[in-house]
Amino acid sequence: MVVALSLLAGGAAAGLFGSLLGLGGGVLLVPLLTLVFGLDLREAIGVSLISVIVTSSAAAGVYLERHVANLRLGMTLELFTAMGALVGGLIAFLVDERWLALLFAALLVYVAITMLRAREPAPDDVARLPPEPVDDSDRHVEPPLTTDLASFRAAALAHLSGDTYAVRHLGRGVAGSAAAGVLSALLGIGGGIVKVPLMHIGMGVPLRVATATSNLMIGITAAASAVIYLIRGEVDPYVTGPVAIGVFVGASLGSRAAHRIELRVLNLLFVAVLLWTALQMLLKALG
């Protein structure tokens, strides 16, 4: 019973801090399960992928209801994250676990550096948020089928754009999404750490919309590789149950408490934890 409750509490802590700091739970869960509970790295990744789907699906549902996520852009890009996840899921079983641990250590250092450099969203992001729609007609316009690639691309970009912003550089988005999918499958993370800056900085999507759309995409990205981990026997139901419930509860609490907590100190503390965890993963990689 103590172990089950510890897994529940560990999942809740990962979900809570992940939600408070804008990280997916996976970045914290995988090291927790391997370094504290002694799980095999691939098994930890399998558990993490299931937990990531639970939290992202709940959040994506709310974002869709509130019309914050860009459904069409998200679905277009998730086709490529799913392809990347399929490839990553297969690669994960071909490489030595020590390489995965090394890659995870690098990811943790990257996240720590990103958190250190993080700034408040620029004012123009807030100004560019999509307003509540007031139009009384369905303004969907299907991109015309044409043999002129440039015209089709322009029409497709317009189709994927929001009411108050224009999506650009779809090719960059496609390539980045595929890479995010590979990383997600290899490391058991949602991949938001790649997708959000990709959409926001690389494609001109406002930060809040990018965050919501990334949440929408995470479910399919993780599902594409989770089925591979599940079929290959790397998802243990006894571990997954308590951890997923814990992450769900922790993330729900975190999203409610985020605006009431002074995150600057927590951020710095967490950077230290991430760097320490990266060191432990590095030591694991080196055997």
Partner: peptide
């Protein structure tokens, strides 16, 4: 532009509720 008229909203709202 993507479909964010009432029909589009209802569609996305239903998907959100389903999720």
């Amino acid at each position: 532009m993507n479909g964010t008229g009432p029909a589009g909203n209802g569609f996305e709202q239903r998907l959100g509720r389903l999720l």
